[in-house]
């Protein structure tokens, strides 16, 4: 099967650098999939799960904001952070989720716009982490 080269780069170093069969990522307009020899493409990336398959084996990554570029049969993700399922601390994510929910409720009643966006982002990150942790094999 034709493969596409996947690179995931974060400010603290490259996370993934290998040939894969298919990549699916949370793009601006929803999740999108990229196969080998995809046309030139550029999209922003939201907080969510990135999935790539390599010969039947599925790998999950939690990514937070950034963008991705597809060119020359190569897909590059530039994201602020990327974590594999094993790296995710489920308890911490759960606590973060509760905290974010509480803050969200507070911010809504007080009509604080900045705190609201912050809490929303934190909640999204926590939810994405939990989802990835759940899906990846222990």
């Amino acid at each position: 099967m034709a493969t596409i080269h996947l690179e995931v780069v974060t400010p603290s170093g490259p996370v993934v650098n290998e040939d894969v069969d298919i990549v699916s990522a949370p793009g601006y307009g929803g999740d999108f999939g990229v196969l080998a020899n995809h046309s030139l493409f550029l999209s922003t990336i939201k907080i969510g799960g990135l999935v790539y398959k390599q010969g039947g084996k599925e790998n999950h990554l939690m990514v937070s904001g950034g963008f991705c570029e597809v060119s020359n049969n190569k897909i590059t993700f530039l994201v602020e952070s990327a974590e594999t399922g094993h790296e995710i601390d489920v308890d911490r994510a759960l606590r973060a989720k509760e905290r974010a929910e509480k803050r969200l409720a507070e911010a809504k009643t007080k009509q604080e716009k900045i705190n609201l966006t912050r809490a929303e982002a934190a909640l999204q990150r926590a939810l994405a982490r939990l989802k990835i942790a759940e899906r990846s094999p222990k």
Binding site: G27, Y28, S39, L40, F41, L42, S43, T44, S71, N72
Partner: peptide, 9 residues
Amino acid sequence: QQGAYTYEP
């Protein structure tokens, strides 16, 4: 590849 990028958004 030739051609322009598809941008989203």
